[in-house]
Design a binder for these strands. Structure first.
Lengths: 253, 253
DNA sequence: ACGCCGCTCGAACACTGTACGAGCGACGGT
DNA sequence: ACCGTCGCTCGTACAGTGTTCGAGCGGCGT
């Protein structure tokens, strides 16, 4: 299970599937699809090789013919869902709406398959589909006027924000999911606990006092949209300032 | 191991440690400290109850007197390191430098204890130390002029960016760590592989062609600093636009 | 002195990922 | 028509996991 791989260069993506002739009863794609199904239903802990095997009506160890290791399988699954992100036509729209669309698409995917958040922290996503999205983002930002390192920085900023906020959001959802309640109900239930400790957190407490009526369910979407908008503002204004001839310090704080 | 907790209301933080009298040979703090040591040395997979027990010269199952479950222990460890973030004096500096300091402090902590990235995706960080940092950020942003939901959104934006980018960065570091090479050496080693697939990623390939000389080791810090700066730009300009009397749509895309 | 009780821990259970090697069935060469 | 090869399947086994249970120990209050 541990990720003590040899080097980045020979990860799953260099080891092609084994098959050559005949018609085997299993296939790598089929296994990955079933794994994603299982992950969606039962979460990261819910996937075990034996369970996956029996879902495919196959012996658990048969899977190892197609997939070297469980880590590899997870990496394949991660990249597979990375391919679900719909990327808008680059030329059609301005760069802000294109970038925003990628961000929202990535977030939607993460919330659809919330187990991926447990994977981002372990291994970098370097599969073909992940690279594909990166490629599109690079294209959008290059067209927007970024160049050199700025392209990498800006794209990393965009992706990182989405990953971070969707990770936080997914963790929050997962923590309330088993109770079967909505976010607002959980907040209502936690209210006495929050009120109790609010004195130890003065700023939080004051804010809480003035915003007790918040709609926790609706908040998440607005929260994300606000973040993306501010972030794009920051990128755009940097671009404009640079074009206006300001000094070119690339933001080393 | 699974996180099928009952409700957010009764997580570890409501279950106080058990001890009452006598001087037991173990303590919750001691266990958490040792767990963090082990996690720092061997990573998330390297922590097992038996290993932790023997490091403390105690039976593995003795730990269960102080900690209900391994998940709880991880949550305690997470919050413990959350307490390492140095928070600057709010009044002394302007809000940008204060916010920037929190961001850099959080990032430094994550890179110091890179196993936390595997935890953010599982359960929300709601321990006292995590709440404490949140509280300070709320204070900084309130002083800066944000109010109502904007405070929550802006603080979430800041924290999410750090979590996302440090998660990505830690994953990258972890993937090259076992080889014992530096990032630049790994990039050098991957170069043929990258060149080979560059044709399938036109934008990426073009960018790569023009930026082959990048310094992968130095890049990370600049990357992060750039992101924080753009993000603060975005927040600040939104603040200024609002004070200038623009319409108040809070950025619902 | 007794008994409670905080605390420790060995044994056991159900489960995990994975190595190994025996077996099956179809295909190519002779 | 036979035989060997080889792609593929899977039962068994091993080392390790988190956690439960209950037996025991030792110091305290009565």
């Amino acid at each position: 299970m541990s990720s003590n791989a040899d080097s980045v260069a020979n990860s799953v993506w260099n080891r092609p599937p084994r098959s050559r002739g005949g018609q085997p009863t299993l296939s790598r794609e089929q296994i990955v699809r079933a794994a994603i199904e299982l992950l969606d239903e039962k979460g990261l802990d819910g996937l075990s090789m034996r369970r996956l095997g029996s879902r495919l009506a196959a012996g658990a160890t048969s899977l190892y013919w197609y997939v070297a290791t469980k880590d590899d399988l997870l990496e394949l699954a991660l990249d597979e869902v990375m391919g679900e992100i719909e990327i808008p036509d680059t030329d059609a729209a301005d760069w802000r709406t294109a970038a925003s669309a990628v961000a929202h698409g990535l977030r939607a995917m993460i919330l659809r398959h919330s187990w991926v958040t447990g994977l981002f922290g372990i291994r970098p996503a370097m599969g073909p589909n992940a690279m594909g999205t990166s490629d599109r983002v690079v294209g959008v930002l290059t067209d927007a006027g970024f160049s050199g390192m700025e392209v990498a920085y800006a794209s990393s900023l965009l992706m990182s924000h989405v990953i971070g906020s969707a990770t936080t959001e997914a963790a929050w959802r997962r923590s309330i999911a088993p109770s079967g309640k909505t976010a607002n109900e959980v907040v209502e239930e936690m209210r006495p606990y929050i009120d109790q400790v609010a004195s130890r957190y003065p700023n939080y407490g004051a804010w809480w006092e003035e915003n007790k009526a918040l709609d926790a369910d609706a908040m998440q979407d607005d929260n994300f949209a606000f973040g993306v908008e501010r972030l794009l503002d920051g990128l755009q204004s940097w671009l404009e300032r640079r074009d206006a001839g300001d000094r070119h310090d690339a933001g080393r704080a």
